[in-house]
Design a protein around this nucleic acid. Structure first.
Lengths: 247, 247
DNA sequence: TAACACGGTTGACTTGGATCAAGCGATTAC
DNA sequence: GTAATCGCTTGATCCAAGTCAACCGTGTTA
């Protein structure tokens, strides 16, 4: 009886942490793996970590030994300059990877902070390299994920380098909408997990500018805003706005 | 006699394309490989390509099957928006890799254009993945290179998001100086391969602003400019300028 | 050798977004 | 239940960088 309970507990734990049973597997690292391969990945992705709202998952300067997959919740990453200025470099949601910046120097180069109570799967990096030497699909998919991050960064550079304030915010909202959609949530209605200041930092704008742009979008009927609750009313309108204004 | 000539020619060709004999190997992909391992890489990096000034190495949308290492010369990469706006996402010099963006979708997402007559080594990507399954050091170093690219992009995001015009240009010059130095060139004197407009596009500024900032730096005694010829006179001064001005 | 194009510089003026400031609603703390 | 704090909105003003325009030097073409 006692044994059975123990077994049950173990199996529950395994269930909880296994990629093979994770509803995010189609978005996350295991994309394209066979059942067998995924089970080998399960061994590796055994540790979960809870991160409370406001807590750091890791800090710039800290040693790197694992990357993290967001299991649930919401994160931001930011970089700091000596003079105190900082810049949000990204927002990460379920199924997305965190910590790829640390591979380069074996130290993290940015901070990762939970914007709501969150859970992550820790993936020891040297073991991931080991397994990806054996599983071609894993190797290839991991390379794709890193490359995708580079492409995403280019998009942000484009946004920061050539777009005006309202275009940046439109691009930001459309990007969030698209990411919520591919996670099975509504594409037109969601709660922002970040403040206006954090949005501003990401978009290279001041919080007042972000706020004014939200108000403007509401006046124009593109969205309905109430604090952090956003309803997108006119996606094509936002897309037009994003593309047609020249700097 | 004829045979000997042929042998000589072959050996010359091999010499020319081999990583093991390349003076860039400490900057490029083979970092950290043993002699043996490097020779295995040689087989893979067998094709060289010349790219004339102004020509494309690859274009956005084009299928991806290889990454490129700059053997000599100078490149820029840029992304285009439908409405015609474009943004330079980077400048690449000898020993640096091009094309990592293409892994993600198997199509290039940016254009790579030679800014002077250049030569690149083509590295077929699937063969690189194959070899890096066998050579741990190669695998790990390749991951570091991709990660370094992500970190670099975060730096550019910081620059575009939080720095003012003169700080951006100072950061740009210091970065170039540092990269020339690690290639054995003078850290204080170099020719810019790109126009003011290209610098501006990279830094999110208009060419007039770049030009004015150059003039300002010259007045202040930080640099001496004559067209594309730059002499850096006061590196600490530029560093101070980069860090102390608040936005 | 003239003329043309191209990249760069500089000046005058404009403007989008920053800054400064006040006020308000929603949480959180006591 | 009230005070305090935090995030957000909105208005007034300012300024860094964009825009427009003239001009110059260098290198290329005819």
């Amino acid at each position: 009886m006692r044994l059975q309970t123990a077994v049950q507990e173990v199996s529950l734990t395994v269930l909880k942490t296994a990629c093979s049973n994770c509803n995010l597997r189609e978005l996350c690292l295991p994309v394209g793996l066979t059942e067998d391969e995924m089970q080998r990945l399960d061994d590796l992705v055994s540790t979960r970590r809870r991160v409370k709202r406001g807590d750091y998952l890791y800090r710039a300067g800290q040693g790197f030994d694992a990357i993290f997959a967001v299991r649930s919740g919401f994160f931001k990453t930011d970089v700091l300059l000596e003079d105190g200025r900082d810049q949000v470099t990204g927002f990460q949601m379920a199924g997305e990877l965190l910590g790829l910046d640390g591979i380069s120097t074996e130290h993290h180069t940015c901070n990762a902070i939970a914007l709501e109570d969150s859970e992550v799967c820790a993936i020891p990096f040297s073991r991931l390299e080991g397994l990806s030497r054996e599983i071609h699909n894993l190797q290839h998919h991991f390379h794709k994920v890193m490359s995708r991050e580079i492409v995403r960064d280019h998009g942000v550079m484009m946004l920061l380098g050539t777009m005006r304030a309202e275009e940046r915010l439109a691009a930001f909202l459309l990007n969030l909408s698209q990411r919520f959609t591919s996670r099975g949530f509504s594409h037109s209605e969601f709660y922002l997990r970040m403040t206006r200041e954090e949005i501003g930092s990401y978009l290279g704008l001041k919080l007042e500018t972000v706020s004014r742009a939200f108000s403007r979008f509401q006046e124009e009927g593109f969205i309905a805003v109430q604090q952090k609750h956003i309803r997108i009313l006119d996606i094509p309108g936002l897309k037009r706005l994003m593309n047609h204004q020249a700097k």
